[in-house]
Design a protein around this nucleic acid. Structure first.
Lengths: 194, 194
DNA sequence: TTTGTTTTAGAGCGATTGTTCTAAAATGAA
DNA sequence: TTCATTTTAGAACAATCGCTCTAAAACAAA
């Protein structure tokens, strides 16, 4: 009986993610969203009850989950530990380099902008860190089991350090440095496995 | 003949720096500034011609310059390379850990919030990076000359990497991780000098 | 078509944004 | 004190903020 929705909620959410990712929470106004999403004021408030804040949260979770899933799938597809890590970092470096919007990482951006204020997002970001560190850890452990990495290495600290390095790359990516220079750093980080 | 100013411009600027550092550009309103600085609307616009944007720029430059000067002075006071780097990172880790406002680094925050938009700040941030990397480089070179570091090491890449690591620490600092865990990462980074 | 329901566009809400203006208070030199 | 000058507090500005509301348009089932 009812009129059907004229837009795909998933698609709208994806678009909202792009805009919040680029401009952050405070600098993205409802008017910006209306223009960018192509749907009306009322449609936004009808679809995402809780207003701007709720829309942001859902957009952020979408980024977080698909980013985690993509990273997990990539690492698990790699057999060689060093080459796998090298390519994982290379992808980040490349993405940041070619993005003319300099969006870098939505999780990093949100950490900076909203952690001092929003507790819910704080937890979500902590989880993100734990998952990424866990993925690094499992990947390194696989390398130990296959004899690619010495058993003497402190995998916990290494996994944690690779996460921190990743965050650093994302900040550095905002200034779009020379990818070759960045890859030099990656090689040095990989030498920690020798 | 004229009435004298009732406030110290330097002091006001330092306060503005603290507020912008904590809340960022967009989430700091003029009203916030009036309340926090303790001076009136007209005094702000009289003293800092160019309004909110100019005040932010000056506050940011103040942070940037004093941060650079502090870091330079610290490194230059250190004779032992490894211990010097260790203490430099330890100070960052400690500062982030005890700051209940989770401000972390104003340069990182501004990179994230304003680089996609503001070109002038973009340059200022690039300069910051260059100076820090240069300080790391000189410090490492001093270590080579004193025989603490092998001549075979690629100081350029190392200096650059320590900068990236520093940025990563600042992002991580937003979630206030266990300082011991962070120091473990520092030790691993220092092992690159062996 | 008719009916019932939902989405939609857009007017409009009070509050707040950054900024300008005005007029009174405050101060140093004469 | 008087005068000239500057700072000050606060009113007022248009514009925008996030959000609500209303009424018309759009659609699915009967």
């Amino acid at each position: 009986m009812p009129r059907t929705k004229q837009f795909d909620e998933e698609e709208i959410l994806k678009k909202a993610m792009m805009l919040f990712w680029k401009k952050g929470f405070y600098d993205t106004s409802i008017k910006d969203l209306i223009d960018f999403l192509g749907i009306s004021n009322a449609s936004i408030y009808n679809t995402f009850k809780g207003g701007k804040e709720e829309l942001f949260k859902r957009a952020f979770q979408l980024y977080r989950d698909s980013n985690l899933q993509g990273f997990k799938a990539f690492l698990e597809s790699q057999a060689d530990v060093r080459q796998g890590l090298r390519m994982a970092f290379a992808k980040i470096i490349h993405d940041d380099h070619v993005d003319e919007d300099c969006k870098a990482c939505f999780v990093v951006n949100t950490s900076i902008e909203l952690i001092p204020i929003n507790n819910e997002l704080h937890n979500s970001i902590n989880q993100y860190k734990e998952v990424i560190v866990g993925l690094f850890y499992n990947f390194l452990q696989k390398g130990v089991q296959s004899g690619q990495i010495s058993e003497q290495k402190d995998l916990d600290t290494l996994a944690n350090l690779y996460y921190t390095f990743m965050m650093g790359l994302r900040v550095d990516g905002k200034t779009q440095p020379d990818p070759k220079e960045s890859m030099g750093k990656v090689e040095l980080m990989l030498s920690l496995l020798d």
